[in-house]
Design a protein around this nucleic acid. Structure first.
Length: 119
DNA sequence: CCTATGACAGACA
DNA sequence: GTGTCTGCCATAG
């Protein structure tokens, strides 16, 4: 599968009310060094991609789009879903950064199974 | 093959 | 906090 496709999948996985960084998306897409490419995908994507593009921000916790070229729109969309954005476009990562829950390991599933007595 | 292009990130002054 | 510099790498041409 193409990197670009995986980036889109990762972005669509960001829950409402949370944000993810470009680097985070790149890592989820399989290349932790390709943050710029994640950005490129968004830059090139159109509305038909149905991407929650506004949930992607930079590692400094800020909106990367310049004022007058998407900044205000992104801020509006984020606030609409409950993400606090200050005047300079900053978001408190401690509070709103998406932390994907890792898939439970085989060992963890086994542990739970024995605890609960399920099969 | 080569070059250019990024809504980046991290290090540093 | 700001500004600059460098490394980064998937695509497009």
């Amino acid at each position: 599968m193409e990197f670009e496709t995986r980036v889109k999948i990762a972005i669509r996985a960001i829950p409402r009310g949370r944000v993810a960084t470009y680097a985070q998306i790149a890592a989820l897409a399989g290349n932790y060094k390709a943050a710029r490419q994640a950005a490129r995908v968004l830059h090139a994507s159109s509305d038909k991609d149905r991407l929650p593009w506004h949930r992607v921000i930079n590692s400094r916790g800020g909106i990367s789009l310049p004022r007058g070229r998407g900044f205000e729109e992104q801020k509006r969309l984020l606030r609409k879903e409950g993400v606090a954005v200050d005047r300079s476009g900053r978001i408190a990562l401690k509070e709103f950064l998406w932390e994907p829950s890792p898939a439970p390991s085989r060992a963890a599933r086994e542990f739970v199974r024995r605890l609960t007595g399920e099969d």
